[in-house]
Design a protein around this nucleic acid. Structure first.
Lengths: 117, 117
DNA sequence: CACATCCGTAAGTCCAGACTTACCGTAAGC
DNA sequence: GCTTACGGTAAGTCTGGACTTACGGATGTG
């Protein structure tokens, strides 16, 4: 649930391959493992990590387990990214605007108090 | 530059602490390393990884190096997240809307062919 | 010039975690 | 019932990478 778990889950290439293989469709463990270069137990362990991170949902169908992408985990990560980089993106935009303003030769239009520092 | 590098860079807790310490201000290596529980060379190595991922910009000031957050690396990651989870989020929204429609007791308003499967 | 400060790099250690094989529980088919 | 597919778990191996200390290059100061 915490964004740290989401990032850790997304950090592994095999787990990202699993996610790519689940775009738009659900699949059983055997179907997920088939195209991957690792054993099925390894896939089971990855599916555990991804589920714990809120990136996958499971559904039972007889003896099979059908996995699908879940939107739960992503919102946490996206929220962290937004708060973390809002300053950098704002200052970046401010600089771009400043460059543009400087190019148009306008004087200073009062202080915008963007960065009170 | 690739989003894989960005995720790998964000996966380490010490590197996330470095990023948190750089919110809204730039700092030298010694200033960044001071509150952290690891040695300064370790911080230098982390700064390398973060810079390679496009998450930091460097500026030289005499013998010091001033690091600051950079918006470059984040856009790649965000683009991947958006494409990866657009389906899941859309189907999630579609389900929510379907539930809402069902609750309003409206009959079927023709087939919306959302999921042609 | 000598000396101190700042910081990147080299080399080596050590551990989390991504793998493997082996095993067991469960559900369906005969 | 027995047997077979499916898949989660246990236990052990091994490698990437996060650390350390030691060193050297670059810049500023007396």
């Amino acid at each position: 649930m915490h964004y740290e778990c989401v990032i850790a889950a997304l950090a592994d290439p095999t787990r990202r391959s699993i996610l790519e293989g689940l775009r738009g469709r659900e699949a059983s463990v055997a179907e997920i493992a088939a195209p991957l270069p690792v054993s099925r137990p390894a896939v089971s362990q990855h599916l555990r990590v991804l589920s714990d991170a809120g990136l996958l949902d499971v559904r039972r169908d007889g003896t099979r387990r059908l996995y699908r992408l879940s939107p739960r985990g992503i919102s946490d990560l996206r929220a962290w990214l937004d708060t973390m980089w809002s300053d950098a993106l704002q200052s970046f935009a401010a600089e771009a605007e400043a460059r543009h303003t400087a190019k148009t030769r306008r004087g200073n239009a009062s202080k915008t108090k963007d960065t009170p520092e």
